[in-house]
Structure formats: structure tokens, C-alpha cells
Design a protein around this nucleic acid. Structure first.
Length: 931
DNA sequence: GCAAGGTC
């Protein structure tokens, strides 16, 4: 059997189809891993790297005294499988293979992935022959030729990749641990450091510093307005920017008629058709359509997997010879783009455009299949259309323009105006993503005199450099060699998820700045793109066998040790600096009471805003628990209170913007304050002026204090306190109702608990007791169905009964028995005979009497007479002796208070019959028997 | 709990 190992499943399938020719390919699955077989060959796809380098066991504890962050530099590494099923299948097939061919991508990582596969094969089959197929596109001629000219695995090339892995792991892991530990950050708040992410973050921080330190310069622009044949024309002074105001004023004053045309120059300009898409130019173009880098890549990946476009991760901007451009045009014919394709075929440029970068791994991104808008949906269509139009544009002729440049003289002041007219739109007719602005000038003739309609001197300011957009950052990363086509957008995602940067365009957070500050001062190497450049040079030497992998790693190790010399000497200071700088991240602004800082505090799942002056100043604002999202400060500041706005962020849901915490605190307490009967707007304002915002604060205040704050006398203050307590009680009950409804009513789409509760409150149902007494219609009006309403009301009644009985003093254990016996309401205790209660619950009648006594006294009802257990047992015997009375009848008689011969003898048969449902005739028989 | 690189 000949085993062929490809880099990914899709390639495996395609390679199999090509090599099989007319033969049928059998696809099989083994533990969800596909294999493609024909003849004696089987092709299996990897998933990129299926193993990962990590430190050997023993280095998992970050705080270990022995295995310090520095010790990671010299720690041994292992390769551990990350895709166990694929590894398993490869090894299973290797055992019976007579030949193994590695057919991974044709680049450094591809060679390394190939070597990983090689090692997996060797581990189970030490003798099988293993060779390598190299191809730069998965097309029939390329693949056939690669398999006719099989070569050997290039171990030097793979070793270059291994050196990168080792260097990245030891620098990244050791520095991440060191900085995180120094700043006392763990869990989700670790501070990560890496060869690619740190220089990228440093650029964003650096740009922010430039913006902050930017001093705008004033300058002036001078222009005049003239016209010819009714066409208005604006001409600019040839001096461009005036930095000297006096000179600008002099030029303005000197601008006078006659305005004479001194020169007219006509020219031609070609507007080159765009070059083929590589990943970066694709992301930039997609960002113009409003897609983030990650989103654009996600959609492109999807289109690729479904056969609509080619592989989206490529550095290549030159179509390889093997790419069948005519075939692609034919594929697109007949669809939405038919007219454009026909036009391109008719007007095609002799050679397609080509970009600066050419590589062997994959062709530029191009369409691979026809699609319809309906099949793809709006976003995917947008991206697909972009790829199609870009492809067509690269085969289209250049656009051409005629340009006009006119020079004017206004009494010695030189002016100029330029115009352009598109004479051949070329590629622009099919690639409408960048606008071609025409500006047609009237036909000026040298020597001609024109009117000056207006002279305009405009004062302007130089602008600071712009923050990086995601796509711009990816471009710069590429220029600096940071990351790869596949990882650049992920690096940005990582910086965002670590909360190093935020917003679009990207701004660094305080944590991001603090980390870059610390690294800049003590581990500069890792913040500079230079490190990547050096690494790549070293990798180049390894590829050419001029240096060994181990030698390069050893040199890097040595450098990292020197970095740690500096870091460890300043560990405390580094940690303190980061902590100090990031404390501000939680600071919201001045405390309204004492003026010290208010800070967001997180304690377990609860979070609140507290004063740094605590415990002297006890001012605080409560926040929803962190299950609603973690509270963070935003850049916006409340004009009224000078406090930063607060937002709750939670993964997977949109943020909950609270806004100014004090405004929100005040607003959410106004309703409660209004529940106090004596509350007036005026009084509320006086209280707010003394920073009293909640009823609970009022309820807890000394009357004298309150009298002073509210500007009232002591008596009124005491009344206010009482009212506040009343309001608190109502609120407490409401919140209880809220919790109860949440617990009982299952959550369902389209009916929120908040809505249900709002409706109940509107209908006057403010607590569980009111709910227990409510009509089903009230609950149904709140949006709950018949069954749900019955359940909710039942649960409310049950809870109220239980509470009443408990309040009366019935112990919890017995309560359960009463409930189980179906006699759980206070009324049951007052109106049902004790023998009945005892028989239903199995509780001793004397104990039942004790409970009935408690409940009746509590409700102010008469207490029935006590019955002893002995009396009850004797009575039962007496009754059972009466012919026709069995156990069941006795229990029914209990309901009417009959428990022995005496009570039966004196009973009124009519009444007993109606209570127990026993036939009157039978009762007469029993009674006459006894008489 | 750490990097960067593949791929999904």
C-alpha cells in the first residue's frame, strides 16, 4: 500500500482525484478522519500541525520555586499530539505501508508538518521508504509531475521551522510567566508576551504616544474661485501650505484681477489595473466593505471550503503558469457576471497584472466556482463578488485618463488648477470598489483673461497621525515581517481578548501600555520587529545548512538568559509599575462625598463601586453581579459628575452599558424614593445635594442627621425614617416576588421575566401574598398560559400557607408531613378535625393538637378540644365493631369529627352525610346499632 | 494559565 499524506483534508481529496485519473476514488472515514483510496494508494489529510511542542512534564506550576520562569529557557521540550484521531489513523496505515509520500504544502511550515508526519510514521514503521512530493498548486499537471519526480524530505528546511518553534516557545512562555507573576496577575488576566504580539502591541502604543504628544501647527491655504462658460473653477495658490500668516495675508491681498491663463498642459495618465489578491490585500479590500479582518477571513475560509474561491491564505500575488485562467473565466460564464466575463474576454490585456510578491505555496486568491447571491446570502456574496471582480480586473486593460494642468497669474500671484477625464475606463467598469473622480476643466486658452469671483484664505491645522485600523495594521505587520498570512488577523484578536487594545481604530488600554513600558525598559528585544528579522536570517542559514538548528537555539537561549538577568534584578519594581499604571483602569472618578477616587471592585461574583477612602468614607454604588458581565470603565466621562461611564462585558453577548454610575444610581432609586408618601421633588433634591440617594440610606440614618440634610424638624425626620422603612419593606417584597417568578416560571423565548413582573406590578400584584390571592386572569394577562398560571398561583399559595404556618410556630419537619397529606393551609388547621389531620399525616394526635392550638391562637380562632392518642385508638376500635364500618369508613367519619362510639351516637346523620358522602341510610343503621 | 504556526 502506498500512503500519501497531505497537509489538509481538502488537498488529500483533490490529490486523490487527480492521481486516480479515470479510476474511482473510495472515500472512507475512520473516527471522523477521511481517507481517499484507489488502486493501491491511500491519501490522508492532516490538519496542519497535528503535534505541538511543549515543555516536558514538571513545568506546569507557574509559582514553583525550582521551575521558575527562567528555568523554562533550558527546559526540555516534547512533541505531543493535538489531533489524536489523525495521528492514530496515520500510524495505523503506516504499519502496513510499503511506501509513504509526504505531500504537504511547499513552504517552511509545510516541510515541518511533513517532518512531523515522518516522525509519526517512523515511530511505528522504522524501515518503510518515505519520500516527498513538491508542488505549488493542486492542478493535474503540477500534481502529476510532482509524483513522477518524487524527492526526499528536506530536513534542513524542517529544522528551520523547528528552531522557530523552540525560540517562540521559550521566549513567549518564560516572559509571559515572569511578567504575569511580577504584576500578580493570574487566570484570565495574565499578561502575555510573544515575538509577534509584543512588537505589534508596541506599534499601537507607540502610535498612541505620537498622537498624545502631537502639537498641531497652524497653516493657511489660499485659493480663488473663477469661472468660464458658466463652469465654476477653483484654483489653488502654487505656494501650497503657508506656514507664515503674514506671507499668506500678503498673497491674499496681492491676488487681484486681471487673472490671466499663463499655461495649459495636457497629458495622459494610465491607471493600472489592480494586482491579484494575496491575503493582506484581500483583507484591506474587504475592510472597505465594512468587514473586520477576522470576519473577512472567516467568510473566505467558508467560501473556500465550499469550492467557491481558492485557498485564502497566500502570500502570492502572481498567477502561476499552471493556473488555467481561461477555465476560470468559463466557469463564471452564464451567471450573474456573464456580461463582465464576455467583456473581459473581448478586451483582455495581453498578460494578467502581477504584484511584487511571488511564492510557491498557493496561487493568489481567485474564484473557483460559480455561485448565486441566493445560495450565498448577503455577506458571503459580498466577499465572493469582490474576489470575482478582482480576478476579472486583473485580466482587464488599464484605465486611461487625460489630465490638464492650468497655470494662472493674478497680478503676480501664481495659481494652478488640475483636471482629469477618464477616457477609457478599462478595469474600472468591472471593479467599482474605488471611485474614479473626474474633474473636467473648461477649455482654457493661454493669454485668456478670467474674472476672480472670490479669494479664500483658509486657516487649517496639521493633524496627528491616524490610529491603526485592523487592515492597516495587518499591512504594516506584513511590511515588518511580523506573523504570517494565516496568523496576522489572529494576533490582533489575541491583543483584543487580552484586553491590551480596544476599539476600531485600535487604541491601547492602560494594561497594554504598562506591559509595553515594562518590556521596553527591561526586555527590549521582544518588543522589536528586529527579533523576527534576525530569526528569519538564522532560519535562512539553517535551510542552507550553514548553521545548525541547535546552534541557533543555543544562541537565542543565551540572549534570553541575559534578558532575565535584567528582569530578575528589577522584578519588584516592574511589578509595582504595572500594578500602579493599571489601577487607573478601575478608577471611575472623584467620590461625590469625600472627593477621593471611586474604584470598581470585584469580590467573587459581586462587584460594586467603592470609595478608596473606605472605611472613613462609606459611599458606594451597587452594580449588577458579574454573571451579567464584568464591570469595566469606558473612556466616556459624565459631564455632571465627572465619573467615567461603566459597562458590563460578557463573552458572547452585547455589552450592557450602564453609563455614568452615579446618574444610573440616582435614576434607579428615584422610583423607590417616590414610594415615600412625603417625598417631594424639592425634598429629593435636598437629599441628593447631601449625597443621599436611596431609601435604605434614609432608613438607616439618625433622625438628627436626616433632619439636617433634609432641612426638616426632628418629628418630620422620624416620620421620613418610618416611611423609608415602609418603602424598603415594599421593595423587599417585590424583589422576593421577582425571585419567586424567576424560579417558578421557566424561561422561554419572547417572554422575559422582567416583562411578566412589570405587568404584575401594574396590576397591583406587588408581593407573593398578593400573587397567591390573585385571579388566574391577572397572571394570564402578564403573558403566562393556562397551565403556567395554575402552576404559578399554586406555588404562590403553597409558599404563603407554609409561611403562615411557620410563623404560627409549626416546625418545618411536621410541615412537610402536613403538605404531603394535602392539609397544608392554615384553614385546614382551623376547620378540619384533629382525628382527620392525624390520620392523613400519621402524626400523633396530641402533637397535631399542639400545632392546631398554635395556628388557631395565631389567627385568633377558637381552639378545638384535645384528643389523646389513647382516646383515638379506643374510639377507632369502637367504630370498627359496628357492623358495616371498615377502615375506609372510619377515615371518612374523621372528616365529620366522629372518632368514637359516643361522637357517632350523637351525630346528625344529615350533616355527616353531606360532609363525608356516606349514605344517610347507612349512617342511620350505624347509629341505631349503637343506640 | 504561557508562543506562533498550521487548519476547521
Amino acid at each position: 500500500m502506498h500512503l500519501i499524506i497531505a497537509e489538509k483534508n481538502i488537498s488529500a481529496n483533490r490529490i486523490a482525484q487527480i492521481l486516480a485519473g479515470n479510476e474511482k476514488v473510495r472515500a472512507s472515514k475512520d473516527g471522523n478522519v477521511s481517507a481517499y483510496s484507489f488502486d493501491t494508494k491511500t491519501v490522508v489529510g492532516l490538519k496542519g500541525h497535528v503535534v505541538e511542542v511543549d515543555f516536558e512534564p514538571g513545568y506546569t506550576n507557574w509559582r514553583s520555586e525550582v521551575h521558575t520562569p527562567r528555568s523554562l529557557i533550558d527546559a526540555g521540550t516534547i512533541k505531543k499530539p493535538t489531533e489524536k484521531k489523525i495521528v492514530g489513523l496515520i500510524q495505523k496505515l503506516s504499519k502496513k505501508a510499503e511506501l509513504v509520500t509526504i505531500a504537504t504544502d511547499f513552504d517552511t511550515e509545510g516541510e515541518l508538518i511533513g517532518k512531523e508526519a515522518y516522525e509519526l510514521v517512523r515511530a511505528v514503521n522504522p524501515t518503510v521508504r518515505i519520500n516527498r512530493a513538491r508542488f505549488s498548486a493542486i492542478t493535474p499537471p503540477e500534481i502529476r509531475s510532482a509524483f513522477e519526480n518524487l524527492a526526499e524530505l528536506d530536513f534542513a528546511l524542517a529544522a528551520a521551522g523547528e528552531a522557530r518553534q523552540a525560540v517562540d516557545l521559550m521566549w513567549g512562555a518564560s516572559l509571559t510567566r515572569f511578567i504575569s507573576l511580577a504584576a500578580r496577575r493570574g487566570g484570565k488576566n495574565i499578561l502575555s508576551v510573544g515575538r509577534v504580539q509584543s512588537p505589534t502591541l508596541a506599534m499601537i502604543v507607540e502610535r498612541e504616544r505620537e498622537i498624545e504628544s502631537f502639537v498641531p501647527q497652524t497653516y493657511w491655504m489660499l485659493s480663488l474661485a473663477t469661472e468660464k462658460d458658466g463652469m465654476p473653477v477653483e484654483a489653488r495658490h502654487t505656494a501650497g501650505r503657508f506656514t507664515d500668516h503674514d506671507a499668506a495675508l500678503a498673497a491674499e491681498v496681492g491676488t487681484k484681477e486681471p487673472l490671466v491663463v499663463t499655461d495649459v498642459k495636457e497629458g495622459q495618465k494610465t491607471d493600472r489595473a489592480p494586482t491579484p489578491f494575496d491575503t493582506t490585500t484581500f483583507i484591506v479590500a474587504a475592510s472597505r466593505l465594512g468587514l473586520s479582518a477576522a470576519n473577512a477571513m472567516r467568510i473566505a475560509e467558508d467560501l473556500y471550503m465550499n469550492g467557491y474561491i481558492s485557498y485564502p491564505r497566500t502570500d502570492n500575488t502572481v498567477y502561476p503558469k499552471s493556473l488555467n485562467l481561461n477555465g476560470i473565466l468559463d466557469t463564471l460564464k452564464g451567471g450573474v457576471f456573464d456580461a463582465d466575463v464576455t467583456w473581459v474576454q473581448k478586451n483582455r490585456r495581453p498578460v494578467p497584472t502581477r504584484g511584487k510578491k511571488e511564492s510557491t505555496d498557493h496561487p493568489p486568491i481567485h474564484p473557483a466556482g460559480a455561485a448565486t447571491r441566493e445560495a450565498l446570502g448577503p455577506d458571503r456574496w459580498k466577499v465572493y463578488e469582490l474576489v470575482v471582480r478582482r480576478f476579472l480586473a486583473t485580466l482587464s486593460p488599464d484605465a486611461t485618463w487625460t489630465t490638464t494642468k492650468c497655470l494662472f497669474d493674478a497680478s503676480g500671484q501664481p495659481y494652478t488648477a488640475t483636471g482629469g477625464r477618464l477616457i477609457s475606463s478599462g478595469w474600472r467598469r468591472i471593479y467599482p470598489y474605488s471611485e474614479a473622480k473626474e474633474n473636467v476643466l473648461p477649455a482654457f486658452v493661454p493669454g485668456e483673461k478670467l474674472p476672480i469671483k472670490n479669494v479664500n484664505l483658509e486657516e487649517k491645522q496639521t493633524q496627528p497621525p491616524a490610529r491603526y485600523s485592523q487592515s492597516r495594521l495587518i499591512q504594516v505587520m506584513e511590511e515588518l515581517g511580523l506573523g504570517t498570512k494565516s496568523t496576522r488577523h489572529e494576533v490582533i484578536g489575541k491583543l483584543i481578548s487580552r484586553r491590551y487594545v480596544e476599539g476600531n481604530p485600535l487604541r491601547p488600554t492602560l494594561v497594554g501600555r504598562a506591559v509595553i513600558d515594562a518590556l521596553d525598559n527591561h526586555a527590549e528585544t521582544i518588543t522589536e520587529p528586529e527579533m523576527t528579522r534576525t530569526l528569519e536570517e538564522h532560519m535562512q542559514l539553517i535551510k542552507q545548512s550553514q548553521r545548525s538548528r541547535d546552534d541557533v537555539i543555543a544562541e537565542s537561549r543565551e540572549m534570553l538568559h541575559r534578558v532575565f538577568d535584567g528582569l530578575e534584578a528589577h522584578e519588584k519594581e516592574i511589578g509595582e509599575e504595572i500594578m500602579e499604571q493599571t489601577a487607573e483602569e478601575h478608577t471611575v472618578g472623584p467620590c461625590p462625598v469625600c472627593g477621593q477616587d471611586l474604584r470598581i471592585r470585584h469580590i467573587g461574583v459581586s462587584q460594586f463601586i467603592g470609595c478608596t477612602g473606605y472605611p472613613e468614607c462609606r459611599f458606594n454604588i451597587s452594580l449588577p453581579g458579574s454573571t451579567w458581565g464584568k464591570a469595566i470603565r469606558t473612556e466616556e466621562v459624565c459631564e455632571k459628575h465627572g465619573l467615567a461611564h461603566v459597562r458590563l462585558i460578557r463573552k458572547g453577548s452585547p455589552p450592557w452599558t450602564i453609563g455614568c454610575p452615579l446618574c444610573s444610581h440616582i435614576a434607579s432609586n428615584v422610583e423607590a424614593l417616590r414610594m415615600m408618601p412625603s417625598m417631594t421633588d424639592d425634598l429629593m433634591q435636598r437629599l441628593h445635594a447631601h449625597h443621599i440617594y436611596t431609601v435604605s440610606e434614609i432608613a438607616g440614618m439618625q433622625p438628627r442627621e436626616l433632619a439636617k440634610a433634609a432641612g426638616v424638624d426632628a418629628g418630620e425626620a422620624a416620620r421620613l425614617t418610618d416611611e423609608a422603612e415602609g418603602a424598603l419593606e415594599i421593595l423587599r417584597r417585590r424583589s422576593e416576588l421577582r425571585k419567586f417568578v424567576r424560579k417558578v416560571v421557566p424561561p422561554r423565548k419572547g417572554r422575559s421575566h422582567a416583562k411578566i413582573i412589570r405587568s404584575l406590578l401594574d396590576q397591583g400584584v406587588g408581593d407573593i401574598r398578593a400573587l397567591a390571592r390573585a385571579e388566574p386572569a391577572v397572571v394570564k394577562k402578564a403573558g403566562i398560559g393556562d397551565a403556567g398560571a395554575a402552576e404559578l398561583l399554586g406555588a404562590a399559595r403553597g409558599l404563603c400557607n407554609e409561611r403562615a404556618l411557620r410563623e404560627a410556630g409549626v416546625p418545618a419537619v411536621s410541615l412537610k408531613k402536613y403538605q404531603a397529606g394535602g392539609v397544608g393551609s392554615p384553614d385546614d388547621f382551623c376547620y378540619l378535625p384533629i382525628p382527620y389531620l392525624a390520620s392523613k399525616t400519621g402524626i400523633n394526635p396530641e402533637t397535631v393538637h399542639k400545632h392546631v392550638d398554635l395556628v388557631c391562637r395565631h389567627l385568633g380562632r377558637p381552639v378545638p378540644e384535645k384528643i389523646t392518642r389513647a382516646a383515638l385508638e379506643r374510639g377507632r376500635k369502637e367504630l370498627l365493631e359496628v357492623p358495616g364500618i371498615g377502615e375506609a369508613t372510619v377515615d371518612r367519619l374523621y372528616l365529620a369529627g366522629i372518632y368514637d362510639a359516643a361522637t357517632l351516637r350523637e351525630a346528625d346523620p344529615e350533616k355527616v352525610a353531606s360532609i363525608t358522602g356516606i349514605a344517610r341510610a347507612r349512617l342511620h343503621d350505624y347509629i341505631s346499632h349503637l343506640k
